[in-house]
Amino acid sequence: MNDRKEIDRGLKTDLDGRLREINQRLGRDIDPEVKEKSRRRNSAGMALALRVASEFVSSILVGAAIGYGIDWLLGSSPWVMIVFLLLGFAAGVLNVMRSAGDFSTVHDIKDDGNEGR
């Protein structure tokens, strides 16, 4: 392999080598894998920005709705709803923390998507 490269360098027929050379000369990012990763990180960040607010609000609403439903069944209005509204708030915070956790695992150079969730 190395021998061939030695021979080919003079003739410039080694496609990989030529590509690397032109990329270096143009000052481009050479490693395609690194580039792909940073691009994915970027779009993941924007996706996170769009997620956080709606997840927080929807948990509170669903918590209140479940509480209201139980109240309606038991006739204990408004106590269960108050409790579930607060639980919904906690769930909202949990959801936001979870998406932030996903975010930080994306930012580590850890490729295992199942970890830390």
Binding site: R51, S58, G63, I66, F84, L87, G88, A91, L94, N95
Partner: peptide, 14 residues
Amino acid sequence: VPIEVISFFSRPLS
């Protein structure tokens, strides 16, 4: 557990 349940059911909404 209730928090996790609420979190799960809030998914289709959000």
